[in-house]
């Protein structure tokens, strides 16, 4: 702001005012048509998103006996959750489930994408095969894998026994040690095609001339991937990881159907626990508080994650 004559200043203000009135209502009035167009969507969103969230937060401060009215109990729901050993056990399960599933699915999905991207005979077939787990519904997947892993008549145990490798069936889903790894395996099997597709889409946008430039510059295949492909895929990777993490954090079907959270709660994760609290135990107050805690955890994770991944990008703009 150098020296400005009063006239100039006035002029600027006048211009700004005419373009963008400070009062939001004036702006809305002037652009009423824009707001009218988005109103139906906003209206619907209010009822299906804003209202439920608000109501969940409201309920989280109440105890909600089946008989009788809701009773305000302040932060009691929250303190009882945070201080419960069970909450931390389930949090640990959830982290284990989410992190291992995401990392494995990401590695395998990316590898599959790199394979599926290459030109070779039968590529279409291979791509098709990779996609199979993805097109099977989660519920069907869960039941199929229960059969495969079943401790008494499972496919895996049966085949290994037929081959004489083991003499009694493997205990997988009924084992406190192996149930979670088995669920993760199924989850990875189910999810890697999604990551493959995302990465494949990304890979196809990697400019060919950059790869050629890197070849000329003496980069090995790995170095080409590391210096050209990977940086180019950064956006896709962030989105894919974020989606996968959220998907896994909210994954309900596999644990619920395959183990119901057992044995001894070793496969209970946040979302199954919240569901059980709300719709099995009808403890809506506690379940709401639990949801709010999860909401806060997930939002802050997403915030820091996105921030970390996009650090340094600002300068470029």
């Amino acid at each position: 702001m150098a020296v400005t004559t009063p006239q100039q200043a006035t002029g600027q203000v006048a211009i700004r005012a005419s373009r963008e009135p400070r009062n939001v209502f004036v702006r809305m009035y002037r652009q009423w048509a824009d707001y009218a167009y988005i109103f139906p969507a906003l209206f619907a969103m209010f009822f299906v998103i804003a209202y439920p969230i608000a109501y969940t937060i409201y309920l989280s401060f109440y105890s909600t006996p089946t008989a009788g009215d809701n009773v305000w109990n302040g932060l009691t729901n929250y303190t009882s959750i945070i201080t419960a050993e069970r909450f931390w056990m389930i949090t640990q399960n959830t982290m284990y489930w989410t992190i291992v599933s995401t990392i494995l699915a990401f590695i395998i999905g990316t590898g599959a994408a790199l394979i599926a991207q290459r030109e070779f005979i039968g590529r279409g077939l291979v791509r098709g095969i990779f996609l199979i787990p993805w097109v099977i519904s989660h519920v069907a997947t869960a039941y199929i894998w229960v059969w495969i892993f079943h401790s008494d008549y499972g496919l895996v145990s049966g085949m290994l026994m037929d081959l004489g490798i083991i003499s009694s069936p493997l205990v997988i889903l009924d084992s406190t040690t192996w149930a979670m790894p088995a669920l993760i395996l199924v989850n990875v099997w189910k999810d890697f095609p999604f990551i493959m597709i995302m990465m494949l889409a990304g890979l196809q946008t990697v400019p060919d001339h950059l790869i050629r430039a890197a070849k000329m510059d003496g980069a090995s295949t790995w170095q080409q991937f590391r210096h050209v492909t990977l940086p180019h895929l950064k956006g896709v990777i962030i989105i894919t990881l974020l989606l996968t993490i959220v998907m896994n954090l909210n994954h309900f079907t596999l644990p619920w159907i395959m183990t119901g959270g057992g044995p001894a709660s070793t496969t209970h994760i946040w979302i199954t626990e919240v569901y059980a609290l709300a719709f099995r135990s009808l403890r809506f107050g506690i379940a709401s508080a639990f949801s709010v805690v999860l909401f806060i955890i997930m939002m802050s994770m997403a915030y820091f994650y996105v921030k970390a991944m996009t650090a340094g990008d600002d300068r470029r703009r």
Partner: peptide, 15 residues
């Protein structure tokens, strides 16, 4: 059945 921890009763009918 070892699968008792994950079985529903359908599994017993099957067995």
């Amino acid at each position: 059945p070892t699968g008792a921890l994950t079985n529903d009763n359908t599994a017993n009918t099957d067995l």
